[in-house]
């Protein structure tokens, strides 16, 4: 695609691409898991920006679409494991919604690596670090998300 390749060439090749990833973490498990990764000094790539939310159930699909539209290269939503939800069932409702959001975005052609969901408990510091590692590497390989973001696409631009 034209504008995509343009983007890639305009991009400074001297350093490897560093994606920007936003992670929405539930307050009770995943945010605590991220804290535990910190307390345990598990190192992971610095590409991630965490936004704390009360529950994975709080994540409106609009947030995910909005993040991509802003040109964020990847989105992670993480909550408590099934059964552990501090709000009893928020993560179960979220799981239904996320399944459809993820599958749909993938279907229309957004790389599935860019929108990820996970369960991370308060005891899973390692797992949190591993997930961030994995996501960052995958998205780094994909390169920047240019084809949906506001301002870099223009109607009728395709050939």
């Amino acid at each position: 695609m034209k504008h995509e390749s343009n983007e890639r060439t305009s991009f400074d090749k001297s350093k490897s691409f560093e994606p920007k990833i936003v992670a929405f973490l539930c307050n009770w498990c995943s945010y605590a898991g991220a804290d535990l990764a910190g307390v345990s000094r598990f190192q992971y790539p610095a590409n991630i920006r965490i936004i704390k939310v009360p529950c994975s159930g709080r994540i409106n699909p609009l947030y995910i679409v909005k993040a991509l539209y802003n040109g964020v290269d990847g989105v992670l939503v993480s909550g408590c494991h099934p059964g552990d939800c501090h709000y009893i069932s928020g993560n179960y409702f979220a799981r239904r919604k996320f399944a459809l959001v993820k599958k749909f975005l993938e279907y229309v052609g957004i790389e599935s690596e860019r929108v990820q969901f996970s369960w991370v408990s308060a005891a899973e510091g390692v797992r949190f670090a591993q997930i961030i590692d994995k996501l960052t590497n995958e998205i780094r390989k994909l390169g920047p998300l240019t084809y949906f973001r506001k301002g870099s696409t223009c109607k009728g631009d395709q050939t």
Partner: peptide
């Protein structure tokens, strides 16, 4: 949530979310 323009990203935003709302 997103721009009112006919820029493609705005158009896509509208349809992505409207269709997701149909799930």
């Amino acid at each position: 949530w997103f721009g009112l323009s006919n820029e493609l990203s705005d158009v896509l935003f509208y349809h992505l979310v409207r269709i997701l709302h149909q799930a």
